[in-house]
Design a protein around this nucleic acid. Structure first.
Lengths: 252, 252
DNA sequence: AGATAGTTTTAATGACTGTTTAGTTATTAA
DNA sequence: TTAATAACTAAACAGTCATTAAAACTATCT
């Protein structure tokens, strides 16, 4: 029946730490139950204080949400500029970005990023736009690295924006499935793995020449060129695959 | 000031269509404002009827959410079994799965999947578990295809589950950035692009032999083997990269 | 026309919750 | 000791919202 007095209390912390604790607790609850479904009573109960006491530290529930967003952004952007600006080959920079990204999500707590990814529409308009803008900025960083990789002849030709979305999506989704624990992967292992997959793909590579990414703007796509036997069929186009599925639809 | 009488009215539809319209409208609003923040007044207003009239078709708000989840699942699973069971090489099956996945999300409406991905914690416990289970089932399907690809020597060695998460994440994230419109990519184009990236990676491929994915279980990883000059450095390990970042931290 | 069933509305209820107010306690400063 | 301030509490305000009850409208059938 007692209030939750877990994890090193709340009273015996100095102010900035107490605010941090409030933010973390809120993030955890918002993550578990959703922002709107979490009451300030829930938060205060979890902290072992009264709701009104909360208002000593945070001026509104909305402000609490803002704080979470600000922290998440700070965390993700902490290293990006340094990485992106460093004089390193694009592939290495991309690796660093990916690693930083996954580390940010996992170490800085999944809850915070879960909220970050799912509660945007709860922010006031102005803040919402700000966040949207920052996200675009981040995408743009990744995009730029990819562009450089391509222009240096290191990366295959592609649509850099689409590729950035693909990579970022793969990384972001970590918050959905990652469960910390003794047997879990470390963020570094995941980053290593993702990088390896993204750089080289999952197909075993004994092909003479890898074709560029298909043109996205037109229908007429790649005429099968000089590739080794056995990999011809890998390049079946999606249009054909579509027909295949449609066919399946009809005949059970 | 009038009620929203857009998109072909509500009154002139037969029952099952009316229920469908309610579900779609709800999904759209839940997507825009969040489940908890959307009132039934919002939904009914959007439909041009009163709140109480809604209760003729849906017994509770929760039920409305359930319906959305059920439809999303139906949509994703519609073809999977047929694809996974078909006697096709693993790489082709994986392509089909990816394509089906992205098509499902985009065509069947982003809103529905946005809700599907973000409002799970609003479901009653029993339903929540059911959904969780279905998601696992889906991951398992992808995983199995990957396992077969590996054992047939077609795919590089890897952790199939991690790879499944990576792929699924890349695909799911589409709901976050895809904006339908005249200049947008088609689902097929996105699927094509993702598949190409996933199969072959973004690095330009003039390497003799692509190394297997690094072992995830131990620290000691790959001794640089017989690879072409110039790609040596690509295989810098994340541990080393970490140090690099840490260093940057200190010296601006 | 009248009855019936299906549909929609108006009006109310009851529970919940973000926020405010007014006051208490503990700690520090003068 | 007195005054001031920070930390906190209890209670209530003001509003919102899911849900229900009961009345009114509409179309169809007899």
């Amino acid at each position: 029946m007692e209030a939750n007095v877990n994890e090193s209390g709340f009273r015996g912390l100095d102010k900035s730490l107490r605010i941090q604790k409030i933010t973390d607790t809120a993030a955890e609850l918002f993550h578990r139950k959703g922002y709107r479904s979490t009451t300030l009573d829930d938060v205060s109960k979890e902290l072992g204080i009264t709701k009104a006491a909360l208002y000593h530290y945070v001026s509104s529930k909305e402000k609490l949400l803002s704080r979470i967003y600000i922290q998440a952004l700070e965390n993700i952007f902490r290293n990006t500029d340094k990485i992106a600006g460093k004089d390193l080959p694009p592939d290495v920079r991309l690796r660093l970005i990916i690693q930083n990204h996954i580390k940010g999500i996992i170490i800085q707590s999944i809850s915070m990023f879960s909220v970050f990814f799912t509660e945007e529409n709860q922010l006031p308009d102005k803040e919402f736009r700000k966040i949207q803008q920052e996200k675009k900025k981040y995408t743009r960083i990744v995009e730029t690295i990819i562009e450089e990789g391509i222009s240096q002849g290191l990366f295959r030709k592609s649509d850099p924006k689409l590729q950035a979305f693909a990579i970022i999506g793969m990384c972001n989704w970590v918050y959905k499935w990652y469960k910390p624990g003794p047997g879990s992967y470390t963020p570094e292992q995941i980053a290593d793995y993702f990088t390896s997959l993204l750089e080289r793909g999952y197909l075993k590579g004994d092909v003479e020449e890898v074709p560029d990414v298909p043109e996205l703007s037109e229908g007429g796509r790649e005429k099968a060129g000089s590739r080794k036997e056995g990999y011809q069929r890998l390049r079946v186009k999606c249009e054909e695959l579509s027909k295949l599925v449609d066919e399946m639809e009809k005949h059970g």
